[in-house]
Structures are given as C-alpha cells and as structure tokens.
Design a protein around this nucleic acid. Structure first.
Length: 405
DNA sequence: AACGTGCTCAACCGCCGAGAT
DNA sequence: AATCTCGGCGGTTGAGCACGT
C-alpha cells in the first residue's frame, strides 16, 4: 500500500516561487513559526503550494542568515573532507557550514567541486538518460583513471552491483587527495585524456585532515534543521578539520603542526589537547589512531567488526549505506575487512604499508581496509600493470566484477 | 543570428524512519 | 501490532542562461 500524497497534486502550484508567495510565507513564519505542521501551513496562509514545497523554500532560500554565492576555499575543504568520510550526507555536511544548505552544498559538489577534484566532466543529459548509472556517475572514469581499458558494458554492469559509483568516487577522491596515484605508480590523473599526473606528482589539492575516529557517534535521527542544530559528538572523537593545514596548501600540510579544532553550528568548538594527544599524524596527512585507541573503538552499532581509523558507520542512522556497501563488499571478498579485523587485531600504520613503502591511511576505515587489502593481497587478476600496480589491479578486479569469480 | 551544448541552481520526487493513532 | 502521517533526506530534473561554432 502506497503512502497517501501529502497534498492534492492537481490543485497545487509547482515551479518557481513568485515574490508574493515568498513574502507571504516569510511573513507568516516570522510571525507565527511553522506551527510544527508544514502540511497545514499553506492552507493557513492561502498558498496553493505543497507543504513540503513550503518547507523547502523556507529552509533553502527564505530563512534568515542563508549564505548565497561562492563557497570559500575553507568551505570547499570541509565539504571535500566530509564527503570522503561520510559520503553524500549533505545535511550533515551542511551542519558544519553555517549559512549553507544541504541543497546548496549538493549542487556545488555535483556541479563544481567534483569536477575540480576528480577532473570529471558531467555527461550530457542526453547521454545520461541512456546510460548505465554506474557509467553515468563517473564509474567508467575510474577505469581510465587506473589505466585499465575495458569497454565491456556487461562487466561495467556487474561492477554496479559490486560497488556504487558513490563509493568508487570516494575512493577515487581519497586517492587523489592523498597523491596515491603517485605513491602506487598509478598513471592518469582522473582526466580522461591525460596521463600527465605522473608518478610522484604533487596532489593538486591541499592535503586534508579528514579525521573520523571509529566510535564517533552522531544522533540516530538527524536534526530537523541541519544548519541550526548541533551535531553531537562523543567526547574527543571529533570530526576534525585542521584549519592550519587547510591554509597551508599543497605539499607541506603534513608538516604543519597546529591546533585542531572543529567548530559546530552551535558555536561550540572542540579542541585537541596540547601536543596533539588525540592523534598522531601520519605522514600522508590522514589520521590513523593508535592500535589501542582503535581497538577500544570497535563498537559499531551493527556489531560488525571494523578497522580503526575512521568513520565506522555507527550512529549515523539509516543512511550509512555507502559505508555498509563498502564494508559488505570487502567482507564478502575476504571474510573480514581487509582480513584484519576478525581476530581483533587492529592494524598499525606500519602494517598498512604497501610493499613499495607507500602508507595507506584513510579517513574512512573502509578506504583504509580496502587499500590495505589491496596491498596485502596484491593482484588478484591478470591485469596487473607493468609497474606492479597492485592497487590498480585490485581496483580493476573490483570495478570489473572480478572479485566474485 | 541561429543553433547546439554545457552549466547552474531552484525545485520536485520518492523513499525512509519516527512518532502518532 | 498495524497503519497512517509527517518531516527529512538524497537523487534527479528542467528552465534559464552562457558560451562556442
């Protein structure tokens, strides 16, 4: 049985809001509030609009203190950092950017930031309409990114089942931000036509401190108003953005030692203790907890084992499917995340280094585990590149559905 | 000038979980 | 316990504009 519509579609106006409608809605809410019932609100004020539409208009446009216009570099960093960690949970990301709405951030990411960071071109609408969602979302680009040529659409379709475009995108972004293309000898920089980002290329984006210790807990039900609500975080397990590192720019961020803090929408600021006792910074700029801390952190709601070092999906409510997906994906392949978690052993930074010495440390434990497994298990297929590109070949296997063979 | 293409962003759609009944 | 209602969310769409040919 389907859900009853929230309003009579036939008698409801759609499309852009007129200034008169805006004025009516704004005046009413400023005087009376929403009354806790958006559905009833349009009738009260004589608007031929759906209640949901009114809510959206208010939250995204009419509400006071909304910021419009370009995003600052710092905002971009925060968005990027959070996207890697938690995926497309725009409302949570918006909660960290006062004055910005989830819709704004979502649009900004989809239209500008993603392209800026991943070098993607959005497929044209016409193309998208006829395309496999995996390819449409840029998954196909991943193949070119790692130097794998495969035009088999059936294989691509299989990969859709293996790992969503969003998950791939986060991996890709994560790698890109870490300069891991160079570290792993991957060629290509994400741009379709270029192999110019050669080994050892300096990342084009300043290194970030995307720090999500494992048992960070956020409310199961997210705020009604993302911007106006505090995201509560347990104790010192905070999502931190190192503003000094952000300001430091590419190349030298890892060397920057500064105060770590995160300002939440409620104005509260969480500071790292003196001496950076929360974290020991890995060279590649992403947080890796000590083994002890990580071990103590294994307390996901799902009861599933995790590897420390990032967002565990715990406490994020119903929408942590991206990470579940990554987890399930890895789990189905190796029986545990990266083959490391079942015995309670949590990898140290050293253990997560690849044979070539490149550290694999992620803001998200799924990335961490995934990349670790790529290192541990090496090439699983026959597509290894000449450079012994284990991560590339593993990715190839995953992306092209080879993992379930 | 006309047309095609790409980009931006406001708005809509449909699903989901929580709470009420 | 089952059903209904609502708010919230993320994904997607489409109108309008800019730009290139």
């Amino acid at each position: 049985m389907g859900r009853a519509p929230c309003c009579d579609k036939a008698s409801v106006k759609k499309g852009p809001w007129s200034p008169e409608e805006d004025a009516k809605l704004k005046a009413y809410i400023e005087e009376h509030g929403t009354g806790g019932n958006w559905i009833a609100l349009p009738q009260k004020i004589g608007l031929k609009r759906c209640g949901k539409s009114c809510r959206l208009r208010w939250l995204n446009y009419l509400r006071p203190n909304i910021k419009h216009g370009d995003f600052t570099e710092e905002e971009e960093h925060i968005i990027c950092s959070l996207y890697i960690s938690i995926g497309s949970r725009w409302s949570i990301i918006a909660a960290q950017l006062p004055g910005r709405t989830d819709n704004d951030i979502k649009n900004y990411w989809n239209t500008k930031l993603k392209k800026k960071l991943l070098g993607k071109r959005a497929p044209s609408r016409r193309v998208r309409a006829n395309q496999d969602p995996y390819l449409a979302a840029g998954g196909g680009n991943m193949c070119s990114t790692i130097g794998v040529v495969n035009n088999n659409s059936a294989a691509a379709a299989t990969s859709t089942q293996a790992l969503s475009a969003s998950a791939l995108e986060r991996i890709q972004l994560h790698m890109r931000l870490q300069g891991m293309y160079g570290a792993f000898g991957c060629s290509g920089d994400g741009n379709d036509n270029s192999n110019a980002a050669a080994v050892g290329a300096v990342p084009q984006w300043p290194k970030l401190e995307a720090l999500l210790p494992a048992n960070r807990l956020l409310p199961r039900s997210m705020p009604t108003d993302a911007m106006a609500t505090t995201v509560s975080v347990q104790q010192h397990h905070q999502h931190l953005v190192d503003h000094q590192s952000l300001a430091a720019g590419a190349g030298d961020a890892a060397a920057v030692e500064g105060k770590q803090h995160l300002s939440f929408a409620d104005g509260e600021t969480y500071m790292a203790p003196p001496g950076g006792a929360f974290f020991e910074r890995p060279k590649l700029g992403f947080y890796s907890p000590s083994a002890e801390e990580a071990a103590a952190s294994v307390e996901m709601n799902s009861g599933a084992p995790i590897v420390g070092g990032g967002y565990g999906g715990a406490g994020f409510g119903p929408h942590h499917h991206h990470d579940d997906e990554l987890y399930d994906f890895l789990y189905s392949k190796y029986g545990s995340v990266g083959g490391l978690a079942h015995d309670g052993h949590v990898p140290t930074l050293l253990e997560l280094q690849c044979p070539d010495g490149a550290a694999v440390v992620g803001a998200d434990e799924k990335f961490l585990a995934w990349t670790a497994s790529a290192c541990d298990y090496g090439a699983t297929g026959s597509h290894q590149t000449q450079q012994g590109n284990s991560i590339g070949s593993s990715l190839h296997d995953y992306v092209l559905g080879g993992y379930d063979q």
